[in-house]
C-alpha cells in the first residue's frame, strides 16, 4: 500500500534519513521505533510532503506521491496525526473536526464519519462546542486522531500518540489503535514506547541515527534482546 524506496531526507547539510526502505501492506499495523532524533518523524513528514526528500521515491497505492503537495497527498487517502497533538487550540472541537474533513465534498458522508468519530470518542461529542485548547492532554490526543479520521484515510500515520500522556491514557490510546485496525484501517505508528507498540504492531523497523538498523515481525524484534537494549533502552 505504502512503499518507501531508498528514501533520504536532508535538512541543509544534515541528513535526517538515509536510504530508508519501508513497506506497509493493506490492513497492517507497522511501527517505526528508535530513539529521539533517529529519523522516524522526518520519515512521516517526508511521506506527507511536509519536507522534500533528497533521494528515492515514495509510492502510495502504486501512485508516486513524493514531490506532491501535502494537500494533494491527503486527498489521496493518506493522513498524519502530528507529534504533540497540535490541535487548533482557538477553535472548538467541532470546528477542528470540520477542518479534518475540509478536503471532502459529500456532506452526507462527512456527517456519517462524524457520527462514527463521536461513537469512538464520546468525550469529544460532549465537548464539541468547547475550545480545543481547554481540553486535557489525553482529550487533545483523541481529538487529533479524530480530526485525522475525518478525512476518511485508508492509511493513518500516528506520530508519538502516547507522548506526554499518563499511563492510563496511553493504554486507552493503544486500545483505540487496535480498534481502528479491526475496522480495517492500515496504520503506520511512530513510537518511543517500543514495548507497547510492538504488542499491537505486525511488523516494525528500528531506526538509529537516520538509518534502518533492523526490521522484522514484532515477535522477532521483541525476542532480539540486543536490539531492544541497544536502541530502545528496554
Amino acid at each position: 500500500m505504502l512503499l518507501l524506496e531508498n528514501v533520504s531526507v536532508s535538512y541543509g547539510p544534515i541528513q535526517a534519513v538515509r536510504n530508508a526502505d519501508i513497506a506497509v501492506k493493506k490492513g497492517e499495523v507497522v511501527t517505526l521505533l528508535g530513539p529521539n532524533g533517529a529519523g522516524k518523524s522526518s520519515t512521516l513528514g517526508a511521506v506527507m510532503g511536509l519536507h522534500p526528500i533528497s533521494g528515492g521515491q515514495i509510492l502510495f497505492e502504486d501512485r508516486l506521491i513524493s514531490g506532491m503537495a501535502t494537500e494533494k497527498i491527503v486527498r489521496h487517502g493518506l493522513t498524519l496525526t502530528p507529534e504533540g497533538r497540535q490541535v487548533f487550540a482557538g477553535l472548538t472541537v467541532y470546528e477542528n473536526l470540520r477542518l479534518g474533513a475540509a478536503a471532502r465534498q459529500d456532506r452526507k458522508e462527512i456527517r456519517e464519519t462524524r457520527s462514527m468519530v463521536f461513537e469512538l470518542f464520546p468525550i469529544l461529542s460532549d465537548r464539541r462546542s468547547q475550545q480545543a485548547g481547554t481540553l486535557s492532554g489525553g482529550e487533545q490526543q483523541q481529538l487529533a486522531i479524530a480530526r485525522s479520521l475525518m478525512s476518511k484515510p485508508r492509511l493513518l500515520m500516528l506520530d508519538e500518540p502516547s507522548l506526554g500522556l499518563a499511563p492510563v491514557i496511553v493504554d486507552q490510546i493503544f486500545r483505540l489503535i487496535s480498534r481502528l485496525r479491526k475496522n480495517g484501517l492500515t496504520i503506520l505508528l511512530v513510537e518511543q514506547n517500543a514495548e507497547m507498540s510492538l504488542q499491537i504492531a505486525d511488523r516494525g523497523y528500528v531506526f538509529a541515527s537516520g538509518e534502518i538498523e533492523k526490521s522484522g515481525t514484532s515477535k522477532e524484534l521483541r525476542s532480539s534482546s540486543d536490539i531492544m537494549a541497544a536502541y530502545l533502552g528496554t
Binding site: L50, T70, P82, F88, G90, L99, G100, A102, A103
Partner: peptide
C-alpha cells in the same frame, strides 16, 4: 465557512492546516 475556519487554523499552525488537505 470552511475557508474562514481554515484561515483561523492557518493563523495558529500552518503546516497542520495543510495536513487537513486544505490548499495553502
Amino acid at each position: 465557512t470552511t475557508v474562514g475556519l481554515a484561515m483561523r487554523a492557518a493563523a495558529e499552525n500552518f503546516p497542520v492546516t495543510q495536513l487537513m488537505g486544505i490548499r495553502a
